[in-house]
Design a protein around this nucleic acid. Structure first.
Lengths: 205, 205, 205, 205
DNA sequence: AATGAATGAGAATTCATTCAT
DNA sequence: TATGAATGAATTCTCATTCAT
């Protein structure tokens, strides 16, 4: 009996995931408001009404998308390296690797986040804050290890994360320059972040 | 006669501006779709139908908001300074000064930008690209003057602009840390951008 | 003074006529409901509000058009002729000559006539009935003169008038056949009406 | 399974017909533009929105009404008769029998036909032209059989059809005379059409 | 649990009419 | 008297949600 229940539960879980997939795609394409329940049901290959067996309403589809994002967005381990620049590049590459596959999700969720307080709190508590705290701890450890300059880690964490997010936004908005250079971005940004903009000191003759 | 006409035109122009003001506020608060024409009319203190004497439809209200943004978003002159860090701080402070007062406008427009191709093209052509080109020229000049390291200016421009935009977005999303530290941000970010994250070399004894 | 008043009145009368002209054209083209007061004002080269100095509302524009029709639609004299067929052809030609120039007016007014009781009564009293009575008298006189067969004149009058009206309607509805043959129609119809459809008797050898 | 589907389809078909019925009635009474979707929904005993599950928009309700008309408007067979007058009376009676039950439909559709090009084309192609061609063939056959005088069948067909239509229109416009005599009309009109208006030759003594 | 037709509240938009200038 | 901007009632249509099957 419990086997059947478990199987049953898995099937339901799978269908739920199917709906969230479809919702993510449709929201990303049309935006939350222009996307209709019918659109999503079509995309999921089910009937309109079925969605309401899995979700209370249209809005809770967004929450489900956010939840899924929260599950994925955990800072990965980076093996410590001696070279700060290589290390930072690896860090950025991982952040990008995290952001990129969720491109659609962000596109789907961001607009509503700006407007919907409940959703915003959810995002803030479940994703933004944990991510930032992780990053802050990470940078603090680096500073303590003498590998980073002593700076306000809260701001630094947000500045770096924000830089990626901002670039990501330009991409979303259709800026062509980034579509090309994205692959090389981590190294360049690492170089920028580690060494700064100032010209290199020339060695004395 | 022409005096009266001119006066009349000014009155109409003022009312038009009034409507754009109201639309900006309401869009920022509720988002484009949740904001109704009635909301905007109420906020502007006029009748629903009056809006359609000034704008073809709800969407063209957004375009008008974007147009206004485009008029304001011109890079100001920065008096050249010897100290690179102070210079960059001034630069950032000006970018922020440009972004901040338009906080509501961005909040109103951004969500639709992500979803509406026409609007996105408009934004891209009228605001993003000009701004970036201005910044690129600026950085190129700095490099030529030997004040900046030789880096891909397109990426650098986008990275810095994106960093501000990303921080701005965190702010919008309700991150408390930034609400406090915003005033000191330019110096800190300038320091980060100019000197980089790497620890300062200790002078040899 | 009375000269000035008279002049003034003539100017007003002329402008009134101008508006009715415009309304006729616009109603004919777009139909009563799709035509807007603004359309008519544009067509008349005046401001929207001015129309209301001459007409109580949109509907009374239709009444004015009908009134004008009533003034024109009087049965002309037909010089009696010996040949019945030629006579009937002349009669039909005159009815057609009356209908054709008012093509636009009919097109403008007919749809509303079918739906608007007040307008229908107006039309019935001022145009249809007088015209029919005139025709009935006319046919009665012809019968008394032995020129027509003894038939129910009410029906005959309506049948003939209706035939023209029906052909006219086909024309309005875009039937191509009639657009060509209209010029020759009176003779043919006269022949049909006078001699009937039955084959001619062949004279005995 | 397919039984249930078929049943379901029949129910939907019936409801669709219900809506077309209601629309016909309401359009006939108020005219296309004054009739609101709400009116029609009320008349059909359903909710406003339900109409849009069956029809794309208000206009396509008209098309559906026209379609229905097109299905009904086929010329019936008339058993050949020796007496031309009786034959024509039978023909007219059948045309009338076709027109009368669709009185409401015509009243509903005619006004828009005059104004709406798309609808007019639809009517022209699906109803007017087929009907006329059928009539033309019919008359041509009669002529070939020596039963009719040699006349332009295109015009004759339109003249007779138009006569009925014109009389029909007078009826719609509220002419009382016809409301009474309609029953006897076929014989009288047949007599008029077959023998013409000219007085009968008196047999010589 | 799945379906999809029915529902009706709500939104954008139109436009006849009014009225201050 | 002419104007044309302002008005807001009315209309079409959409779509999230419900619920009988």
């Amino acid at each position: 009996m419990s086997d059947i229940d478990a199987l049953q539960r898995q099937i339901l879980e799978a269908r739920r995931a199917l709906i969230v997939d479809a919702a993510t795609r449709v929201f990303a394409e049309k935006g939350f408001h222009r996307a209709t329940i019918r659109d999503i049901a079509h995309a999921a290959g089910i009937a309109d009404g079925t969605i309401y067996n899995y979700f209370a309403n249209k809005e809770s589809l967004l929450s489900a998308i956010l939840d899924r994002l929260a599950q994925q967005d955990t800072m990965p381990e980076i093996s410590p390296q001696n070279d700060l620049r290589a290390f930072m590049a690896a860090y950025l590459r991982q952040r990008i690797a995290l952001l990129w596959p969720n491109y659609e999700i962000f596109k789907a969720v961001l607009p509503e986040l700006l407007v919907n307080q409940d959703l915003r709190d959810l995002y803030h508590q479940q994703i933004l804050l944990p991510g930032m705290q992780q990053a802050e701890q990470f940078f603090t450890a680096q500073i303590d290890a003498g590998k980073l300059r002593r700076l306000d880690v809260a701001i630094v964490a947000r500045a770096i994360s924000g830089m990626l997010f901002g670039l990501f936004l330009f991409e979303m908005l259709g800026d062509e320059h980034l579509q090309i250079a994205w692959e090389d971005a981590p190294e360049m940004l690492a170089s920028l972040l580690v060494d700064g903009l100032k010209p290199e000191k020339k060695p004395r003759p």
